[in-house]
């Protein structure tokens, strides 16, 4: 039977549950940092995860970067043409990519491609008692399984964002210079003059690094905390993608508001 009291009770229960889970995630993050020694001492473990999260995500990142660059080139040219400043196409494409689209879109793709697979892998290891078995063999699963995957994602994410941006610039150049006929020299020189290394590129790298931490943490946590059943793991994967997307967009707003406040 529905009653206001039961509604309030359910709401309170759900709120407490979420706060408790958030606290558990924070403790989990501290445990990863505390037990990260293995990931650095035994570098092949982390390199393997960089390969799985980074190298295997390259194709989707490069292709997406190219298409985003092509679209940016088309849209940018169309708008700049109205003001007679099509030679600024290079700087428009580069700034859009290094400041925003590179880190954000690459992170969204990374969460869907690599984050979901990390959650599935850890979740299935939990469901098939592999984590328990490791624990019984006196090997801490957070040190051996979780931390290398976390650091693998943290390292891979900025590299993927850089590849995305580079491919996007190439796409913008292809559509602007090769197909539409914008002056090649103007395209690159305007870009060189308009893009500041520290202000634009470095801030973009910081963003992608922060997104890498967020997505990797969400992915490993959701896997580790998943209900060890087929349904539980599938729900955890969904939560990884949804929570990562929302977190990336929210963090992007916060970081942008600190980094780019109309200076210069």
């Amino acid at each position: 039977m529905f009653s206001p009291a039961s509604l309030i009770r359910k709401l309170g229960h759900a709120t407490v549950e979420r706060i408790w889970r958030l606290g558990f995630a924070a403790r989990f993050f501290v445990a990863i940092l505390r037990l990260s020694g293995t990931s650095f001492r035994r570098l092949p473990l982390t390199l393997r995860e960089i390969y799985f999260s980074g190298v295997l995500s390259l194709l989707i990142i490069l292709v997406s970067g190219l298409f985003v660059g092509l679209v940016l080139g088309l849209q940018g040219f169309e708008t700049l043409q109205r003001y007679g400043s099509t030679e600024a196409l290079g700087v428009l494409v580069a700034l859009s990519l290094t400041r925003e689209l590179g880190p954000v879109v690459a992170a969204l793709l990374f969460a869907s491609r690599a984050g979901s697979s990390v959650t599935a892998e850890i979740g299935l290891m939990k469901a098939t008692e592999q984590l328990k078995a490791m624990d019984m063999m006196a090997v801490n699963p957070i040190a051996r399984v979780v931390a290398p995957r976390f650091w693998g994602g943290v390292v891979a994410m900025p590299l993927l964002a850089a590849m995305f941006s580079a491919m996007g610039v190439l796409g913008g150049w292809l559509i602007g210079v090769v197909f539409i006929g914008v002056d090649d020299g103007a395209f690159w020189s305007q870009m060189q003059a308009g893009v500041d290394w520290r202000y634009d590129v470095w801030n973009g790298v910081i963003k992608s690094f922060v997104f890498g931490i967020a997505v990797s943490l969400i992915a490993v946590f959701e896997g580790y905390d998943s209900v060890p059943t087929a349904e539980g793991v599938s729900r955890a994967i969904t939560r990884t993608v949804v929570t990562s997307a929302l977190t990336i967009l929210a963090l992007d707003f916060v970081l942008t508001s600190f980094m780019f406040r109309g200076a210069s």
């Binding site: 299935l124 290891m125 098939t128 008692e129 592999q130 328990k132 078995a133 490791m134 019984m136 063999m137 006196a138």
Partner: peptide, 16 residues
């Protein structure tokens, strides 16, 4: 202590 213990799980729990 667990280094002196071994455990066989219900379905083996081999690392896949």
């Amino acid at each position: 202590l667990r280094r002196k213990m071994g455990m066989l799980f219900q379905f083996g729990a081999l690392f896949t």
